[in-house]
Amino acid sequence: MNDTQRTNNQCEGWNNRFKHLVGHHHPHIWKLIKYIKLEERVAATVIAQHEIGNFQPRNKKRMYGQLQQRLKSLCVEYQTGDRELGNFLRAVGHSIRFG
């Protein structure tokens, strides 16, 4: 309702990227420290770019923006009493594509 993230995909994305950066499930401590330092430098660069106004956030796919807006409007309709629970759940189910 307050336009925040619906999922933890950003955290999952970071975990996946770091796993591929390290390349091992159980690296020894020195290798892990090396890659944590590398990740810190990347994060510092991103922060510096953001501070000087040179940061370009990734564009959301239009489809996901439309889905987010549809789910938000359904929630508002349910909260205001314009839509009953069964109807609300059916509408949410029809809005989400599985595939």
Rank of each mutant, 00 (worst) to 15 (best):
E84L: 11
K31S: 06
I36K: 04
E40N: 06
G86Y: 12
N59K: 15
F55K: 01
K72S: 02
F88H: 08
G86E: 13
Q69P: 05
L67R: 05
Q68F: 13
K31Y: 08
K61I: 12
G93Q: 15
H50Y: 15
I47S: 03
T4A: 12
L32C: 09
N9A: 14
L74C: 07
N8Y: 08
C75S: 09
Y78F: 12
T80N: 13
Q66E: 11
H26I: 10
N59V: 07
H20P: 01
G86M: 02
F18E: 00
K31I: 08
E84R: 09
L32W: 05
Q66S: 11
R41C: 05
V42N: 09
Y78G: 00
F18H: 00
L71M: 06
T45W: 12
R62I: 10
S73T: 14
G65Q: 15
H94S: 13
Q5N: 11
Q10W: 03
G13Q: 11
E77S: 07
N54W: 03
T45D: 14
D3P: 02
C11N: 10
I33L: 15
N9Y: 08
A48V: 01
R90G: 03
H94L: 14
L38H: 06
F18Y: 04
G65L: 13
V46M: 14
M63C: 10
L67T: 02
R41N: 02
W14M: 09
G53R: 04
M63T: 07
I96Y: 06
H24I: 00
G53C: 05
H26F: 12
L74V: 00
Q10R: 11
I96K: 08
K37C: 06
E77N: 01
Q69D: 14
T7F: 13
I96N: 02
H24T: 03
F88P: 07
H24R: 08
F55P: 00
G81Q: 03
K72C: 04
V46W: 13
R58H: 13
I29Q: 11
Y64E: 10
H24D: 04
L71R: 02
C75L: 10
I47D: 10
P57F: 07
I96D: 08
Y64G: 00
P57I: 01
N2I: 06
F98N: 07
N16V: 03
L89P: 01
Y35K: 01
K19G: 01
I29R: 08
H50R: 15
H94V: 07
S95W: 07
N8R: 06
V46P: 00
Q66K: 15
C75W: 05
G99C: 06
Y64S: 05
K31D: 10
H24P: 00
R97K: 14
R62H: 11
F98M: 15
D3C: 08
P57C: 04
I29M: 03
R6F: 10
T45K: 09
E51N: 12
V76E: 12
I52T: 14
R83S: 06
Q56R: 11
I36W: 01
G53K: 05
L85C: 09
A91K: 07
N8A: 09
A43S: 05
R70Q: 14
G86A: 11
F88A: 01
Q79M: 08
V22N: 02
I29S: 14
Q10P: 02
K60P: 03
H26K: 13
Y78L: 10
I52Q: 08
N15P: 02
C11D: 04
H28R: 15
V42G: 05
